[in-house]
Every structure is written in structure tokens, then in C-alpha cells.
């Protein structure tokens, strides 16, 4: 398919939003589920975008920025792979094969961008000295431009210089054993993401609940939603019955409205 000028512009604009989203980590526009869907929408094939997004989202489930540690970059990976899959009429598996090297490259770029922003921090120190509120606001928000361009420029280059023919040519040059192997690996690289989440949780004494979920799901054919509900109930019962919280419940009964607000948050 041919990409129209308005599509190039929309891709650039969304790539900017996703790039900002990847550092803000608030609205999650940088996650595959959102980014691939939007790119699909722009390119007129939302269906492929959603499926690719779901597939990549599972792989990226545990990709998170904790403290100052950087995860692989889902923003650039989702956008580039969605463009190439849709424009080049490629399979979802080919999308995975494209996404992962791009995620690694994006990680390098974001580390670079977060180093550049040290400059903004120092400029802010000088703005504070002069009590310049406007300049402080400007410095904080303009640091986002660095992150926006880090994703938008590569995305723009790919959109402009790639067409169906060149994508197919590129992917056809990969031998069969590699694409087949990537397909197989796509089924189990999700384990890296699970491991990242599990390591972060770091509560070893709660691991029985992990095994409970594992055993139940190995033998029961429920939907994920119902397993989620079971997990919620189990968590609720455990925290309700745990003797270590009994003291607290008694004081809460006679407590102030603050504890009430806490309880509401908890639910």
C-alpha cells in the first residue's frame, strides 16, 4: 500500500505522543496495545494493529522502569513493527522479529535522551535562582521534546523510506529456519517478562499464591477475567484473616474518617 502524506503526518504526531508517553509512563500510550492499535487506525488496518499490539503486549508485560533502570523500549518497537507489518503485508510473527531488535535500539536512545535532560535540570537551577516560574515550566515540559523526537524521527524515516516491496525484500532475505525459529521462540520469550515482574515483587513468602494460580490454570479452562476475580477474592480473604492485621481492624472500627478513606482506596 502507498502511504499518503496525511498518514505520514499523523504517524509523526502519534510517534511524538508515544515518545513522551514512554518517559512519562502515565497514560501508557507507549505500550504495544495502544501504540500498535493507533498506528493500525492511521494506516487503515486497525484489526492487524490490535492483534499485533496484543501479541507484543504479552511479550512486553514485564518491561518496566523501576528507579533509574531502563527496560527495552516498547514505544519505538510497537510503532516501527506496526508500520512494517501493515505496509508490507507481513505476518504477526514477522512483527515480533522486527519489534525486538528495535526495542533494544530504542533502549539505547532513551538512555541517551535521559542523559541529555541533565542539561534541563541545570538550567532549572539557574531559573530558580532568578525566580522565573515560566522558565521552570518551560524547561520541564520542553524536556519532553527530546523524548518525542527520539521516537518520531526514526518512525518518520521508516515511513518515508520503506514501501511494501522493500519490506518484503528485507524479510524474504531471512532464511526459513530463522523465521520458523522466531515463531517458536515467540511462544516462550514471554517468560522473561514474567520473570521481571516476579523478581520485582520480591515477596518470597507469598510465592504459594503464584503456585496456586499456576496449578489452577494448568488444569482449569477458565477465562483470564475469572482467574483475576479468583485472585482478588483469595487476596481479600488472606488479608482479612491474617492475624497480623487483627489489631488494626479493631482500632479502625473506632478510627477516624481517614481510615475510612484508606479502606475505600483499598477496595
Amino acid at each position: 500500500m502507498e502511504i499518503q502524506l496525511y498518514q505520514v503526518i499523523l504517524i509523526f504526531v502519534f510517534a511524538c505522543i508515544a515518545g513522551m508517553g514512554s518517559v512519562l509512563d502515565e497514560f501508557q500510550t507507549h505500550r504495544p496495545l495502544i501504540a500498535c492499535t493507533i498506528i493500525g487506525l492511521i494506516l487503515g488496518d486497525i484489526q492487524t494493529g490490535i492483534i499485533l499490539g496484543g501479541t507484543l503486549e504479552l511479550i512486553a508485560l514485564g518491561w518496566m522502569n523501576i528507579g533509574a533502570a531502563q527496560s527495552p523500549d516498547s514505544a519505538l518497537a510497537s510503532i516501527i513493527s506496526a508500520i512494517l507489518v501493515i505496509v508490507g503485508h507481513q505476518s504477526i510473527q514477522a512483527g515480533i522479529a522486527i519489534a525486538l531488535p528495535v526495542a533494544a535500539a530504542g533502549q539505547v536512545l532513551t538512555v541517551f535522551a535521559r542523559t541529555i535532560t541533565v542539561f534541563f535540570q541545570h538550567a532549572a537551577d539557574r531559573a530558580a535562582e532568578k525566580v522565573n516560574f515560566r522558565l521552570l515550566d518551560f524547561l520541564h515540559m520542553s524536556a519532553l521534546v527530546v523524548q518525542a523526537l527520539r521516537v518520531a524521527i526514526p518512525a518518520l524515516l521508516v515511513t518515508v523510506f520503506m514501501n511494501a516491496g522493500s519490506v518484503q525484500h528485507l524479510l524474504n532475505s531471512i532464511p526459513n529456519v530463522v523465521t520458523g525459529g522466531l515463531n517458536v521462540a515467540g511462544g516462550f520469550i514471554v517468560a522473561v517478562g514474567y520473570a521481571m515482574v516476579l523478581n520485582m515483587m520480591g515477596a518470597k513468602y507469598l510465592m504459594p499464591f503464584f503456585f496456586l494460580g499456576f496449578i489452577l490454570a494448568s488444569y482449569l479452562n477458565f477465562s483470564l477475567l475469572s482467574f483475576g476475580a479468583i485472585g482478588l477474592i483469595v487476596a481479600f480473604i488472606y488479608t482479612q484473616l491474617n492475624p497480623k492485621y487483627q489489631q488494626h481492624t479493631q482500632t479502625a472500627a473506632t478510627g477516624s474518617s481517614e481510615t475510612l478513606a484508606d479502606d475505600m482506596l483499598e477496595d
Binding site: V197, F209, F210, G213, L224, G231, V234, Y238
Partner: peptide, 10 residues
């Protein structure tokens, strides 16, 4: 607990 349970499922 909820997080670990769902991870086990996944």
C-alpha cells in the same frame, strides 16, 4: 497476592 496469582496463571 493478586499479582503473583495472575502471574502463575499467565
Amino acid at each position: 497476592i493478586l499479582g503473583l496469582f495472575v502471574m502463575g496463571v499467565l
